[in-house]
C-alpha cells in the first residue's frame, strides 16, 4: 500500500514538473536570464507550489502523526553553517550551468532524452562524491 501511494505521489509530482516547465532547461535558464530572453513562468511554479504547500502543511501537521507513519520527520537544525551556505551556492552554480535541478531532471528522464541521462548520471556521481567527503572529512556534520 505504501508503495502504491508513494508511486502515485511521485506521479503527481512528475506530472506537475512536466506541465510546469521545470523539466525544460531552456525555460529554467530563461527564467534566470532577466537581462536577456526572460521567461517569468517559473515564478508561477514556485508561487503555486508554495501556496498549496503552505496551506496544506498547516492542515496535515495538526494531526499528531502522519496517516501511514509513526511520526513526522521534519529537519530540526536551525543554524546557518558553511555546508548549508556553500552547498547551496554550489548547487546554484551547477543549476545555472546545466539548467536542470534534481526535481526537474528525475521526471525529465521519462521523456527518454539522452541529455537527461547524462545530467542524472553526473548528479548521482556528485551525490556519491559528496557523501564520501562527508564521511571521510566531516564526520561530525553527517547529513
Amino acid at each position: 500500500m505504501r508503495i502504491i501511494i508513494s508511486y502515485l505521489i511521485g506521479l503527481i509530482f512528475g506530472v506537475g514538473i512536466s506541465i510546469s516547465g521545470m523539466a525544460n532547461p531552456a525555460k529554467v535558464l530563461n527564467f534566470f536570464d532577466i537581462a536577456g530572453a526572460w521567461d517569468p513562468s517559473l515564478a508561477f511554479v514556485m508561487g503555486g507550489a508554495l501556496a498549496v504547500t503552505f496551506v496544506g502543511y498547516r492542515v496535515v501537521l495538526r494531526r499528531p502523526a502522519p496517516i501511514m507513519g509513526d511520526r513526522f520527520q521534519i529537519p530540526t537544525k536551525r543554524d546557518f553553517d558553511l555546508p548549508l551556505i556553500g552547498g547551496s551556492a554550489l548547487f546554484g552554480v551547477g543549476w545555472g550551468i546545466a539548467g536542470f535541478c534534481p526535481g526537474g531532471a528525475l521526471p525529465a528522464l521519462g521523456t527518454g532524452r539522452t541529455e537527461v541521462f547524462v545530467f542524472v548520471a553526473a548528479l548521482i556521481a556528485g551525490i556519491i562524491a559528496a557523501k564520501f567527503i562527508q564521511r571521510s572529512f566531516l564526520s561530525e556534520t553527517k547529513a
Binding site: G16, G47, L50, T53, P66, G69, P102
Partner: peptide, 25 residues
C-alpha cells in the same frame, strides 16, 4: 506553470500527511 506548481504542492502535502516525509528530490 501555476497548475504544475499546484500539483507539486499537492504531492508535497500528500507525502507529509500520509507518510510524514519531506518531498525533496
Amino acid at each position: 506553470s501555476l497548475a504544475g506548481g499546484a500539483l507539486i504542492g499537492i504531492a508535497a502535502v500528500m507525502l507529509m500527511g500520509l507518510m510524514g516525509r519531506i518531498m525533496g528530490a
